[in-house]
Write a protein that binds this DNA or RNA. Sequence first.
DNA 1: TAAAAATACTCCATAGGTATTTTAT
DNA 2: ATAAAATACCTATGGAGTATTTTTA
Lengths: 297, 297
Amino acid sequence: MELRHLRYFIAVAEEGNFRRAAERIGIAQPPLSSQIKDLEDELEVQLFRRLPRGAALTEAGEAFLAEVIVIFRQVEFAKQMALRGAAGEFGRLRIGFTGSAAFNELVPKIIRSFRKAYPSVALTLAELNTRQLLDQIRSRSIDAAFIRPGPTSPDGIKITMVAEEPMMVVLPTGHRLAKEYAIPLSSLQDEPLVLHSRELGPDLYDEVIEGFRRSGVDPVIGQIAPQITSIANLVAVELGVSIVPAPLSAINVPGVVFLPIIGDAPRARLAVATHPDDHSVVTRNFKQQVATNLQKR
Amino acid sequence: MELRHLRYFIAVAEEGNFRRAAERIGIAQPPLSSQIKDLEDELEVQLFRRLPRGAALTEAGEAFLAEVIVIFRQVEFAKQMALRGAAGEFGRLRIGFTGSAAFNELVPKIIRSFRKAYPSVALTLAELNTRQLLDQIRSRSIDAAFIRPGPTSPDGIKITMVAEEPMMVVLPTGHRLAKEYAIPLSSLQDEPLVLHSRELGPDLYDEVIEGFRRSGVDPVIGQIAPQITSIANLVAVELGVSIVPAPLSAINVPGVVFLPIIGDAPRARLAVATHPDDHSVVTRNFKQQVATNLQKR
DNA sequence: TAAAAATACTCCATAGGTATTTTAT
DNA sequence: ATAAAATACCTATGGAGTATTTTTA
C-alpha cells in the first residue's frame, strides 16, 4: 500500500464515480480502476459497490475513508513537525554557569529571551565552577556554559565572548582605604589577598595575579575562597582584601565596601562555551540569542 | 511522498546506517540514498546528518520520526476499521414493527441478540402499522420491519417468515360462551366482530375474514379498532367479539377472556420485511440473527 | 584515511495510456 | 439500452541495480 492508493481512494469516494475521480487526479480511468482493485485486494475487502451510474462506498469503505482522512492529516502534521524540529523548537538545552557569571545582567536576560523564543525546549541549568563546566562541555554532558575564560580559547572548546567586566577592590569597612572613592591596585602592596582556588578557575585567577604584578604589587595569598561569590564574605571577616568582577558588588554583604580601581585594572571576561562539534540547531539558536542580546546592548 | 519513503526513512533512522537499512529493506544502498534525498527535498528539511560512520537523525528527523510512526499506526488502524466495517460492526439499523408483532417472544429476543453481537451499530425502533412499514421499507426510511404479511410477498419487498401464530377468540367475560375452554368459530355466527381497519394491515384482515367464511360464518363488522392491540379493550366494553394472534392473550385486559379455537382456525403470520436491493452488511447481519433465533427454537 | 554515502549509468517493473468488452439496472 | 467500470494490451516513468566517486570526521 502506498499513499497513492489512498489518495485515489479518497478521490473515488468523494466523486462517487471512477471516471470523474480519474479526471480529477489527472490519470485515465482504467489505471485508477486497477489501483483501487490493488488496494481492495490488499485489504481483502470491497471498498466500493460498482453501480450502473458510478460507485458507492461499502460499509468497509465508509469506515476506511474516515481513518484514511486521519492518515493524511497525520502526514501533514509530520511535515510540520519536521520543519519545527529543524527550526530548533523541540529538544533540550543544558546550560551551565559559574557562580560569578550569574551576576552579569546579560546572563538571566539571555536565558529568559531564549525561553520565550523556544518555549518547547526543555532547559536545565547547573551551577558549577569553570573547570567542571569545560569538562562537561567536552563530554557533552551540557550544551552551553557561561564561563570566565582566559584571553585564549581552551582546547576543544568553542568560545563566544559575552562581556568584559572591570574588576573592583573589596575591602572590609574597617580598612584604612575603605573611605576612598577609588584606589589604584598599587595601594594594596603587602595586603593579604583573598582569592578563589586556581584549580576551579585558572584563567580569572591568572588575570588577577597578573593585574597585581602589572601594578607593581607582588601578591600575597592570605586565604583561598571556595568560590568567587564567597570572597566578599571572607573579606568581611577581615581575612584580607580582594578584587572581584564589578557585577558582584551587587551582593549585599555587610562589612565590606567595593571601590573602583584607578589605572590599569584587571578585567574579568565572561563568555559562552560550547562544543565545537555541536551542530544542534537548539544550541545554534541559543548562541543566536546570545548574539542578539549583545547587539541590543 | 509515498509510504515507501516513510518506510525507508524509519529503516535508516533505526539502523543509523544507509547500507544496513538498505539490506533490511531488501534493496541496494544507492536507491535508498536517492529515496531519502527525494523525501528531504520534498520536506525541504535535512532528516539525517551524514557521518563518516553512518547517519544520525537531525532534530528535524527526530521530530518527523515520532509522527511517521503514528502514520503507520493509523494505516494499520484504518485497515482494521475497513475489516470491521465489512463485518457490519458499524453503521445503523432502523427497525420497524407492528404493535401486534411485539408480543411474539422472538421479536425482543432477536433485537437483543443483534444488539449484543453488534453493539456499535446504532439501533432505532419505530412502531407503525404494516402498511406504513412496507412504505418505509420501499422508500428506505427503515431497514427491516416485523410485519404481518399475507401468504404472498408484497411487491418490491423481501419477506423472511418468522412465525405462524394460532389465533384465539376474544370474548367479554359476560359472554354466553366465556366459560368454555375452547370454541369453534362457527359458534360466533351473527356475533358483531371487532376488527382493525383493513387499510392498516390488509393481509391479517383478509386472513381473519377468510377464516370465518371457511367456518361457515358470514362476518358482521361491529366496530373498527384503530389497531390490533386495542381490539381486546373494545371487546371488554362489549362492542363485539374478535380473534387475535395467540401471543396477544398475554395482555392483561380486565373484562375479556381468550379461548383457543376448535377446528380450522386462521393463523397469523409474522415476518421480517426488507428491501430487496439492500446489500448492506448490517441488514444482512440482522437477517442472520433472525435465522439464528429461528433455528434455536 | 577509510568507511559510508552520493553520483552516474543502466535496466526493468509497474503506473499509466489506449482500445475494447463487460456489467448492472 | 446505456453509462460506467473492467479487461487486454501497450508505453514509458522512475524505482532499483552496478560501478565508481565523493564526502566527512
